[in-house]
Design a protein around this nucleic acid. Structure first.
Length: 562
DNA sequence: TAGCTGGGAA
DNA sequence: CATCATCCCAGCTA
C-alpha cells in the first residue's frame, strides 16, 4: 500500500498515517497545493501556477510524474499525467528577449503565437509581428504582457535582462559592533543564491518563502551584497521599514548617510532607501498622479525588495508592471493571497525561487517546535437560538465571540501560568471581555504607541505574563515573543493570518521547551469552517492540529494536577 | 519645530 | 464576510 491516491478530477489524496508520509509530502510540495486537511487524508490539488513554479525551478514533468508514480497506490489517471505534462511544457514556449527596438516575444510554437496575436488584450500590447515565431513588444508593455499571457495560460520566460542600477559597494559584516560574530545560516545562504543564480538573465526576479523568524531581512541584505547596487526596499509599515534600516546599519558596512527612510515622517532618499507600500500608493485627493512614486521612480535602482510580498497592494502591482527592467526580490512567509492574485505576483515579481519548509527549520533548531491544538467549545443555549435566527453574516460573529471561549482561555492561561501567553483575537468587544476576566492588559489599534511599548517591555521582562492583543499582532513586528499563543477568533479563513500568529511563538525555546498554539473554535458553526480553512497553510507545512473538546481540556487539567 | 488628533483611503 | 488595522496628511497647540 502506497501513501498517495491520484484521482480523476485532479485532486491528490495523501494518507497521513502512512509511514512514508513525510517523503510523499516533500514530493507533492514541489508541484501541488494543499486544499483540505481533514483527519486521515489530506487533499492536494495540482494547479497551473503550482506547475509553472515547479517548471521555473527547473523540475521536469517527466521527473515529477515518475516520483508521483512511485508514491501512487494505483495507476496514475491519464488525464492528470497529460495535464501535468502539457501545463509544464507551456512554460518556456514563450520567451521575452531584448530586441533592437524594444522587446522580442519569441515562440517555439508558431500556433501559440497565432493564437495569442488574435487575442484582444494582447493586440493592444504588441508593436508589430516580425515573423511567424516572433513579435515585437514595446519596453513598457513588459509587465502587462506577462500578466496577460499568464492569465491566458502561457507563462512567459523573461530573458530580457535588467538595468544594472547605480553601483554601491558595501559588505556584510563578520563581526557586529557589540562583538558578536555574524554568519549566514546555511538555508539563508541557499535562499540568497537561489535568487541570484542564473546570471544576468534569470537571476533577477523571484520570490523567497520562509517562515516568520527565519531571518528574511538577512537574506535580503545578502542579495543586496551579491548585486552591489542601489536598492529600494518596500515594507508593509513604518516599524518594518525601520527594522530594515537598523539591520542595514547593524549588519552591513553601509553608513547612516547611505540608508534612508522614505515615509510620512521622513522623506530622505539614499542609495538604500526604505519606503512603505502606502506612501507609494498615496495620491492627493482628486489628483491623477502619485507624487512619491514619481519621485522614487527617478532613481536608478538596481534592485527592489518587496518585504511581505503577499501584502502587495493593488496600485503597487501597477507600478511593478512598469519597472520590469529592475531586479525584483519578493520575501514572504506565505505566498497565498486571499484575493487570489498569486498569478500576478508570479508574473510581475517572478517565480518562487526558494521555499524553506517550516518543519525542516524546526528540526534544525532555528525555529521552535510547536504543538497546535484546536479547542472546540459549544454555544450556549441562548447563542444557539440567536445563531439559528441570524443572517449569514451575523452567524460568523456570534460563533466567533462564543462565550464559552472565555472560559477556555482562562483554563489555558492557568495551565500555562509560568509561561508568556499572548491572547489574539479579531473583535475588540470580545477581547475587552477576556482581558477583564484575565485581569490582563489589552492592546488594540487605538492604544497609542508609547503605551504599547511600555506593555511590550513589561511583557518582555516577565513583569506581566499575559497580553491580550487585537489585529495589531498581525502587523507589529516589535511585539515580543511568547511561548503560548491562544487565538480566540480570526479573519474569515485567512491562512496568512494564521501563519503570522503562529510566527509569534516561533523563536527558538530553551532546551526541551515547546511552543503552544491554541485556536478556539465554536463547534458546528461557521467558525469551524473558517478555522479549517485557516489551518490549511500550516498543515501544508507539516503541522498537525490536535483536536480537543472543552470538557477534555478541563479533565486534562485535573489529571495533570493529581 | 515637535507632538498630538482626526479624517480619509484602500 | 465585515471588522479592524494601517498610514499619510492637515491642522492644531505650545
Amino acid at each position: 500500500m502506497r501513501p498517495v491516491i491520484v484521482q480523476m478530477d485532479g485532486s491528490i489524496l495523501l494518507d497521513v498515517h502512512h509511514p512514508q508520509v513525510e517523503a510523499a509530502r516533500q514530493v507533492l510540495a514541489k508541484f501541488a497545493e494543499l486544499e483540505k486537511s481533514p483527519d486521515h487524508f489530506h487533499t492536494y490539488r495540482v494547479t497551473a501556477l503550482s506547475l509553472w513554479n515547479a517548471a521555473a525551478a527547473g523540475h521536469r514533468a517527466a521527473e515529477l510524474i515518475e516520483q508521483l508514480k512511485t508514491l501512487s497506490r494505483y495507476e496514475l489517471p491519464l488525464p492528470i499525467v497529460r495535464f501535468i505534462t502539457e501545463t509544464m511544457d507551456r512554460y518556456g514556449i514563450l520567451e521575452l528577449r531584448k530586441g533592437q527596438h524594444g522587446l522580442i516575444l519569441a515562440s517555439s510554437d508558431p500556433l501559440v503565437l497565432t493564437e495569442i496575436t488574435h487575442h484582444k488584450t494582447i493586440q493592444g500590447l504588441v508593436r508589430k509581428v516580425l515573423s511567424d515565431s516572433a513579435i515585437e513588444v514595446p519596453l513598457l508593455s513588459r509587465g502587462a504582457i506577462k500578466v496577460a499571457l499568464t492569465k491566458m495560460g502561457y507563462p512567459v520566460k523573461d530573458l530580457a535582462g535588467y538595468t544594472e542600477g547605480q553601483p554601491l559597494s558595501f559588505a556584510l559584516k563578520r563581526h557586529l559592533s557589540d562583538g558578536r560574530s555574524f554568519f549566514l545560516r546555511d538555508y539563508q545562504e541557499r535562499a540568497a543564491n537561489a535568487f541570484h543564480e542564473g546570471g544576468a538573465l534569470t537571476g533577477g526576479s523571484g520570490v523567497l518563502t520562509l517562515p516568520c523568524g527565519a531571518g528574511k531581512t538577512v537574506i535580503g541584505l545578502r542579495a543586496m551584497e551579491l548585486l552591489q547596487t542601489s536598492t529600494l526596499i518596500l515594507a508593509a509599515n513604518v516599524t518594518a521599514a525601520r527594522q530594515w534600516i537598523r539591520e542595514c546599519l547593524d549588519k552591513t558596512t553601509l553608513t547612516e548617510e547611505e540608508v534612508a527612510e522614505y515615509s510620512g515622517e521622513s522623506k530622505r532618499t539614499a542609495p538604500v532607501t526604505v519606503a512603505t507600500y502606502q506612501i507609494l500608493s498615496y495620491r492627493p485627493r482628486g489628483q491623477e498622479d502619485f507624487p512619491h512614486l514619481t519621485l522614487l521612480s527617478e532613481h536608478n535602482w538596481g534592485l527592489i525588495i518587496y518585504d511581505e510580498v503577499h501584502l502587495l497592494p493593488a496600485p503597487v502591482f501597477r507600478v511593478t508592471a512598469e519597472i520590469q527592467a529592475r531586479r525584483r526580490l519578493g520575501l514572504t512567509a506565505t505566498l497565498v493571497r486571499e484575493d487570489g492574485r498569486e498569478d500576478e505576483v508570479f508574473s510581475l515579481i517572478g517565480p518562487k525561487k526558494f521555499d524553506a519548509p517550516w518543519k525542516e527549520l524546526e528540526a534544525e533548531g532555528w525555529i521552535a517546535t510547536a504543538i497546535c491544538t484546536e479547542v472546540r467549545v459549544t454555544l450556549t443555549d441562548i447563542e444557539r437560538r440567536l445563531y439559528a435566527q441570524a443572517e449569514l453574516r451575523e452567524k460568523a460573529r456570534i460563533a466567533a465571540e462564543a462565550q464559552r471561549k472565555d472560559d477556555a482561555v482562562v483554563e489555558l492561561v492557568t495551565r500555562h501560568k509560568d509561561e508568556s501567553v499572548l491572547v489574539i483575537g479579531q473583535y475588540v468587544d470580545q477581547l475587552q471581555r477576556i482581558a477583564a476576566r484575565l485581569n490582563a492588559p489589552l492592546i488594540t489599534g487605538s492604544l497609542r504607541q508609547k503605551e504599547r511599548e511600555r506593555l511590550y517591555s513589561a511583557f518582555r521582562t516577565g513583569e506581566i505574563h499575559v497580553l491580550v492583543v487585537s489585529k495589531v499582532a498581525n502587523f507589529s513586528i516589535d511585539l515580543p515573543d511568547a511561548s503560548v499563543a491562544i487565538q480566540v477568533s480570526g479573519a474569515f479563513g485567512s491562512r496568512q493570518e494564521e501563519a503570522q500568529r503562529l510566527g509569534r511563538i516561533m523563536r527558538p525555546k530553551a532546551e526541551g521547551m515547546l511552543a503552544h498554539f491554541y485556536t478556539l473554535v465554536a463547534k458546528e458553526t461557521k467558525d469551524q469552517e473558517f478555522a479549517l480553512s485557516r489551518q490549511r497553510f500550516l498543515t501544508e507545512q507539516g503541522y498537525e492540529y490536535q483536536i480537543l473538546d472543552q470538557e477534555e481540556l478541563v479533565l486534562q487539567e485535573v489529571t495533570q494536577r493529581q
